[in-house]
Simulated scan of single mutants.
Amino acid sequence: MKLIKFLLILLLPIAGFSQMGGEGEVYLKGDRIEAKFNGGGIDKFQEYLNENFDYSKVTKLGKLEATFTVDEQGNVTKIRITQILDIESATEMIRVLKKCPKWEPARRGGKPISIEIKYPMVFQKK
């Protein structure tokens, strides 16, 4: 019994350290700089959508969600609608994303990387 207590006291700090080591891996990935749209963040992208999205195409209330990739050159690629309301609003979202100007790509370690962005739009009565 004393041996078990001794081993528990000895091994508990090691187990705690291994959990902290896993958190450290997340920190190491923290050098990523997010992609920018027209010199800003997602708020600038939202302004672009508000100016270019034809809201008359929306026939249902609810949530439309698009996923797309901003590649290493800043192009919008791999456009997908992951949550659909109706065909008209989904088609309009794809149209607006296809004509989207280039982004400033995300960077990791100073090098451009491609990232996936998930963007939801919620349509509700005002």
Rank of each mutant, 00 (worst) to 15 (best):
Gly40Thr: 09
Ile81Lys: 04
Gly62Thr: 04
Trp103Glu: 04
Phe68Ile: 09
Val122Phe: 04
Arg108Lys: 15
Ile117Pro: 00
Ala66Thr: 08
Ile4Glu: 13
Lys118His: 06
Lys2Ile: 13
Thr91Ala: 15
Leu49His: 05
Glu34His: 12
Gly109Ala: 02
Phe53Ser: 01
Thr77Glu: 14
Ile94Ser: 08
Ile81Pro: 00
Arg95Leu: 07
Leu10Glu: 02
Ile94Arg: 11
Ala35Gly: 03
Gly21Ser: 11
Pro112Asp: 10
Glu92Tyr: 06
Gly40Tyr: 10
Trp103Leu: 02
Leu64His: 05
Ile84Trp: 05
Gly40Asp: 05
Val26Gln: 14
Ile81Gly: 00
Lys111Gly: 02
Asp43His: 01
Lys98Val: 07
Leu28Phe: 15
Ser18Gly: 02
Gly21Pro: 00
Pro13Cys: 04
Leu28Met: 15
Tyr48Phe: 15
Asp31Phe: 12
Pro112Ser: 10
Gly40Trp: 10
Thr69Arg: 14
Phe45Trp: 10
Arg95His: 10
Lys57Cys: 02
Gln46Leu: 04
Ser18Thr: 12
Gly30Arg: 14
Lys98Ser: 14
Leu11Gly: 08
Leu64Asn: 01
Ser56Gly: 05
Gly22His: 12
Pro105Leu: 09
Gly110Leu: 05
Glu51Cys: 00
Leu7His: 02
Leu3Lys: 15
Gly39Asn: 04
Glu116Trp: 10
Lys36Thr: 13
Pro120Glu: 04
Glu25Gly: 09
Met1His: 07
Lys99Asn: 13
Ile9His: 04
Gln83Phe: 02
Lys125Gln: 09
Gly30Ile: 03
Glu72Pro: 00
Ser18Pro: 01
Pro101Gly: 09
Ile79Asp: 07
Ile79Met: 09
Asp71Glu: 12
Gln73Lys: 15
Glu104Cys: 01
Ile115His: 09
Lys63Gln: 15
Trp103Asn: 06
Ile84Ser: 12
Phe53Lys: 02
Ser89Asp: 04
Ile113Met: 01
Gly110Gln: 05
Asn50Gln: 13
Leu85His: 01
Leu97Cys: 08
Gly39Leu: 08
Cys100Phe: 05
Ile115Glu: 10
Tyr119Ile: 06
Glu88Cys: 00
Thr82Glu: 15
Asn52Gly: 02
Arg108Cys: 08
Ile9Glu: 06
Val96Arg: 03
Cys100Gly: 08
Ile33Asp: 00
